[in-house]
Design a protein around this nucleic acid. Structure first.
Lengths: 237, 237
DNA sequence: AGAGCTATTTGATGCGGGTCAATCCGAAAT
DNA sequence: ATTTCGGATTGACCCGCATCAAATAGCTCT
């Protein structure tokens, strides 16, 4: 079933190629972390597999990363969506508790455990970031546990509004401005992130489009004509 | 063969760290935190309300605490179950992102923001704990996003097995031993934690009892005659 | 023991979203 | 253009869990 689908996806080289083309790298932000290794991976590269020995802590310098967990029968849940500045690889104990995969071409800073132990300033930075990611996880638990499919998709879109932290309808900037959103994820990934099936995600997008709450030509470039109206569907306000 | 696999799982420390020994009413552990203010609250006391100014970081010294979020229409999701050693109050901005309520009578250590800023050792301790809680959240996201009602309840029970970190069916101690579990939560709280309704939780408990996987007289004292059989329903193995 | 709660259990019913199965569509190759 | 192939969409149907409603079990207070 879904397991088979995932399996097929993982082993398909053409898919990787298509993906790499589709998600062009962001204009090199040229960030660096003194004293850390830097590495680059192509989109879809599996950086950490669940159960791997925990050999390093990573910080995202460019691009996007997803953390996910699998059940033995193939069900997948994408746990976190990471962007620039986010960190991962911080399991407790010697084993990774989640898998990490590049969503786009990425550049990562790699910190060895010894370096983390030796550098209090680094720990503080990781700590601060972890607090932020923890809040995002809290929000996501609310979404997964209590929101309807439409609320999940609306919340997801609001989170991706560029330059805002998921509360785009609030604050100074006009909530009735038109906004363009790049999803950067396939329907399957959105589904696995939102705890839905690909069909439900697709249907929900279609319903939102029919209601003129969103529009799109390419299926990963969504235009939201009025953020306030979309925000009202998130269940949060 | 089977034994070897079990052994491997047993050594997977993430679960131990994340869930071990949470949640026992420990006869007054008499822990203290030098330099911190200590407070006591009765069960049900609201320690932090969502939206409060973030005035302190807390560590649980005794008892249990729940973190939860509400939607405007009243839907509630319990985000984390905290036990001895866990920390909360670590929002990013100046405002609490979740509410915190005493599940049992609790004793808490209170750290002022200034104290946290001034004490690197404290930050390190908070950091370490946050990593553990983060792993627990990852697990819970998987549960909320992808598990069936029966799997959720079975997972919940396995997590509460005293002295083991959620993998009680494995390891040296006999998985076929009889184990007594104190839930210490109402059906409503269990439902809000597992992303279900109270009726579904109740029905699932009844079904498990009918199948002789659990038994109970008081509805918050569950006896599991055979952990292995219950563990098989969690979806995780 | 009995009254009056509230929490839990059980039953009946409906719906949201999952499952299965066809298309449809767009990018790449020919 | 035409073919091809994988992803997305749409449709038909079904099932697990929510919802609504009623019965029962535990509590506390007389």
């Amino acid at each position: 079933m879904e397991a088979a689908r995932n399996e097929a996806r993982f082993n398909n080289a053409k898919y990787d190629a298509a993906w790499a083309i589709r998600f062009r790298p962001e204009p090199e932000a040229a960030r660096t972390r003194p004293g850390a290794h830097h590495v680059r991976y192509a989109a879809r590269h599996l950086v950490i597999d669940e159960g791997d020995a925990a050999r390093a802590v990573y910080e995202v310098l460019d691009g996007g990363v997803i953390l996910f967990k699998l059940l033995p029968d193939g069900r997948r849940q994408i746990i976190e969506l990471l962007g620039v500045g986010d960190v991962f690889g911080l399991a407790v104990g010697p084993v990774a508790d989640v898998a990490a995969e590049a969503l786009t071409p990425v550049r990562l800073a790699v910190f060895e455990p010894a370096a983390v132990d030796a550098d209090p300033a680094l720990r503080d930075r990781l700590f601060a970031r972890l607090r932020a990611q923890m809040c995002a996880l809290h929000d996501h638990a609310l979404l997964l546990g209590r929101k309807s499919a439409q609320e999940r998709v609306a919340t997801y879109l609001m989170r991706l509004v560029p330059g805002r932290g998921g509360l785009a309808c609030i604050g100074a900037a006009p909530g009735n401005a038109e906004v363009r959103i790049e999803l950067r994820m396939s329907r399957q990934e959105i589904a696995d992130y939102l705890g839905l099936t690909i069909e439900t995600v697709s249907r929900t997008f279609s319903a939102l489009r029919r209601a003129n709450l969103i529009s799109y030509r390419k299926q990963d470039e969504v235009v939201v004509p009025n953020l306030c109206r979309l925000c009202r569907l998130t269940g949060a306000h």
